[in-house]
Amino acid sequence: MVQDTRSPLARASGLGPAGKGAAEWWAQRVSAVALVPLTLWFVIEIIAHMHSDYAGFVAWLRSPTGMIPMVLLLIALFHHAALGLKVVVEDYLHGLVKFSALVAVRLGAVALAVAGILAVLFIALSG
């Protein structure tokens, strides 16, 4: 093991309270507040569209009242999920597994959010 020559402050940086915890704590709450109306809107829309077929599904996402909340939902959902899963991983996993899981959570959240948004836009904007 290489001798650690960093100062105590540098070693503490990034460990818990010395890092970006407060900003992420706030982001978790703000995204939670955004998700309250967005998820309730989603549940209500799903129930309202339960009888509709593929054409109805496309028409729903093609309308601004369907497309815009759906994109906002995807952004808020995966931001909130990434922050929450990060805390869960940090609490229960350690070492290399923790590092790998943190990378997987981050990349997975971004990939899923982008895929979902592009799918919505594709449905909404294509012929």
């Binding site: 599904f57 496309v58 759906m70 995807l74 899923l112 895929a115 979902g116 919505v120 449905i123």
Partner: peptide
Amino acid sequence: LVVWLSAGA
């Protein structure tokens, strides 16, 4: 949710 939307696309 993303699988569902992707299938729709």
